[in-house]
Amino acid sequence: MRSHALALGLGAAAVLALGACNKDNNKSARGAPEAQTKKAQKVAGTKTIAAGIAPGSRFMTAAKTSGLDQTLAGPGPYTVFVPDDAAFNSAPPGTFDPKPENRAQMTGVLTSLILQGTVMTADIDKLIDRGKGKGMLATAGGGLLTATKDGGKIVLTDSGGHKATITQGDEQYTNGVVHHVDALLMPGKPASGPAVGQKKAK
């Protein structure tokens, strides 16, 4: 095994030298592959959540970095709480920088905004009524959001006590529904990033 590794290493050095001669060619020849097969795309429909959310929004930028844009183009169905762009400013600095080492953290945050199935605001209202003022929603990230009402609006609270109000609900897509919220919900324990020895960006 070790001699095999050494041989690979020597081979790689040759490749490395070739690569060094061609420094300008450091862009990927291809982008992200389609995660959804043709059949999955057909089931998802033509007006998906991924296609419907503004591509330049901070939510979608983060979704692309963590690969969740492809998820939201799939059959689902999903219920997604999309924070306004301004809400992302409340996150610790650097949380949503689109760098590879931030992917894990972003994945943890974004999946705390996604539910499985199609949950309309009327469904959350009924849940709250049935629970005599509050109801629990399980997120794709494995956490729970507490739903309550305040001034006739639905308020979501995460395990860390962060609150977000649904400002515009029930935006329907062929693979689920989007509710716009005014604040960011964060997982109770931030996921640790994979970077080791990573120096600050120049």
Binding site: Q116, T118, M136, A138
Partner: peptide, 27 residues
């Protein structure tokens, strides 16, 4: 390269609904 689908813990017949899954969510 991508997350193709997000799944839930799933339900088991004869067992209670998991916490947080009692909201109506039918497509």
């Amino acid at each position: 390269t991508s997350v193709a689908a997000l799944l839930s813990p799933g339900f088991t017949i004869g067992r209670p609904l998991p916490m947080g899954y009692d909201v109506y969510n039918v497509p």
